[in-house]
């Protein structure tokens, strides 16, 4: 059993490794086994099930898929769902669109977030706390309502159009809602704090003397930025970009509320495949492929976070 093995004491440099009495050993085992078991059942097992169902045929029944083993005990699996995903152009285009939209949103977040993080890191320590708080605050306000706020702004008769028409700048309302533009606004708006925070963390740790030293040695401001600031900020840039890109890839609410019917993203396809078409095996296959696309960035992010934790310890 994984759990028992995990709780067994080993030659280790951890503090609690040197437990000598059974009550403490019991506590150690419990503290490890409880969250471990929980995650095995409610996090790892579900993935096995997704994989299993993605290899089944859809049927009209409850639940709507064929069992992996039929009544006679024969293994019955099919790669039809994956084959369908690969051959139907619609899915390939949707995956590609999702990657591009997420990447574009990431770049936009970076170009707005970097100067912001830089600016915050360079203000007085007293105001820094307040500015950071204002970055974090929207996190705590319902995500859904923040996206909703933009609906009122970007409507054909929303605040922006009303204002522009009142100012006489336009005659006809500009179509903003239900376009890719609106989706980008929503994505940047929602994920900007994810970009600013890790960037701020690295920029704040950076020694300002380094930039001055570079300028002292003859580098122009721009040169000093590209030679010193940018390379040193790279860990934060990478973390921020991954933190925006990964969730943006699977985003459902923003494209649903702000995007048009033609701006299909993969999160929405999965949702619709599941709830509207009730094709659970196909939805599972969509999820598996999405997961495969995200494996590299997720592993990258975890490696970054692990090394960041080591260096700050």
């Amino acid at each position: 059993m994984v759990i028992l093995a995990a709780a067994q004491r080993r030659d280790s440099d951890g503090l609690m490794a040197t437990t000598h009495n059974s009550k403490d050993e019991l506590w150690r085992r419990f503290a490890l086994a409880a969250p471990y078991l929980w995650l095995l059942v409610f996090f790892l097992a579900p993935f096995a099930i997704i994989l299993k169902i993605s290899l089944a045929d859809p049927v009209i029944a409850q639940p709507p898929f064929t069992p992996t083993f039929d009544a006679t005990g024969h293994l019955s699996i099919t790669a039809d769902n994956f084959r369908f995903l690969l051959t139907d152009k619609l899915y390939a285009i949707t995956y590609l669109r999702s990657v591009l939209m997420a990447a574009m949103a990431t770049v936009l977040c970076l170009s707005l977030g970097f100067p912001m993080a830089y600016g915050i890191a360079r203000t007085q320590p007293a105001t820094r706390g307040l500015l950071l708080l204002l970055i974090v605050l929207p996190f705590w306000i319902s995500f859904l309502l923040r996206v909703y706020a933009w609906m009122g702004l970007m409507n054909n008769y929303g605040v922006i159009n009303n204002f522009l028409m009142w100012a006489g700048l336009i005659e006809q309302p500009i179509q903003m809602m239900y376009t890719d533009f609106a989706v980008f606004i929503g994505l940047v708006y929602t994920y900007l704090p994810f970009m600013v925070l890790p960037l701020y963390a690295t920029l704040e740790r950076m020694d300002l003397d380094l930039v001055e030293a570079a300028q002292d040695l003859g580098a122009s401001r721009t040169r000093a930025f590209w030679d010193i600031t940018w390379p040193l900020a790279r860990p934060g840039v990478i973390a921020g970009c991954l933190l925006v890109f990964i969730p943006a890839m699977g985003e459902y609410v923003i494209p649903y509320l702000l995007g048009g019917p033609e701006s299909l993203l993969i999160g929405r396809v999965l949702f619709d495949e599941f709830f509207v078409n009730r094709d659970w095996p196909l939805a599972s296959a969509v999820a598996i492929v999405l997961l495969l696309l995200l494996v590299v960035p997720i592993v990258l992010l975890q490696r970054y976070q692990a090394s960041d934790q080591d260096s700050s310890a």
Binding site: V41, F42, A45, P46, F47, I49, I50, I53, I246, P247, M249, G250, E251, Y252, G267, L270, F271, F274, W280, A283, S284, A287, L290, L291, L294
Partner: peptide, 12 residues
């Protein structure tokens, strides 16, 4: 991504 977590838990 939330869609994956949600789907996988429902299937569980």
């Amino acid at each position: 991504p939330e869609v994956i977590t949600g789907l996988s838990l429902l299937l569980l």
